[in-house]
């Protein structure tokens, strides 16, 4: 972080673009500078952490799910130990355990965190605003079918809706069901059907007609 005033804006320019700035933006910058000045961490480490999170996108989770669709043994390993299975395909999910849960003909899974906003960020990135909203956190657990309808998802009454309240040490990744009409598709093409929302469980995977 540049402290000289020669107007090398590159370090903190992004904040300037956020005008009008708020107290908490100032506080954030102040804390970042203080912990660097105190030698608690380096500016590089903060930057690398931001880059790490920028690299975590739904595409990672989609790649994992697509492989479970074409490789049943891999799927078993994902359900057994997601971190280990993800590592097989070069994805590091870090220290917080992620549990994969599979949608089937009989069960549709959907994830919420009613107490805060726990989310499988190391596989699908940071959560969308709605996941952190009061409306979603309050209602998804009590009237999941209504909330799913708001996402355009209708689950027939003969399918169990199973809500996972991600309250403690685990994070949850839904493995959406493979859509019909994709029998001859390869992993790369299948991955394009697997959206972020389908891995939270608020929508199914896209159908081949949607691509």
């Amino acid at each position: 972080m540049s402290h000289d005033h020669t107007h090398d804006h590159t370090d903190y320019q992004p904040d300037i673009e956020d005008f009008p700035f708020t107290d908490r933006m100032v506080m954030t910058q102040a804390i970042a500078e203080l912990i660097v000045e105190k030698g608690i961490c380096t500016a590089d480490e903060l930057r690398q952490q931001i880059e790490l999170m920028d690299s975590k996108e739904p595409a990672l989770g989609a790649r994992l799910v697509a492989k479970t669709w074409v490789d049943p043994e891999f799927k078993s390993r994902v359900l057994e130990d997601c971190a280990k299975a993800a590592a097989e395909i070069g994805i590091d999910i870090g220290d917080i355990p992620i549990k994969a849960i599979e949608n089937t003909e009989d069960v549709h899974n959907v994830v919420v965190c009613t107490l805060c906003s726990c989310y499988p960020r190391m596989l699908i990135g940071l959560p969308p605003d709605w996941y952190k909203s009061r409306a979603y956190r309050s209602r998804a657990v009590k009237e999941p079918r209504k909330v799913l309808e708001e996402f355009g998802t209708h689950i027939p009454d003969n399918v169990e809706v199973r809500v996972h309240d991600s309250t403690a040490d685990l994070r949850y990744l839904v493995l959406p069901a493979r859509p019909d009409g994709t029998a001859d598709w390869d992993e790369r093409k299948l991955a394009q059907l697997i959206t972020r929302d389908s891995m939270v469980g608020v929508t199914p995977a896209k159908s081949p007609d949607d691509t």
Partner: peptide, 18 residues
């Protein structure tokens, strides 16, 4: 869990508890 839950009887919620 809920009085007057509106969905089918088979619907469930799974919670991680210590």
């Amino acid at each position: 869990v809920w009085d007057g839950y509106e969905g089918p009887a088979a619907d469930t919620v799974v919670i991680d508890l210590y």
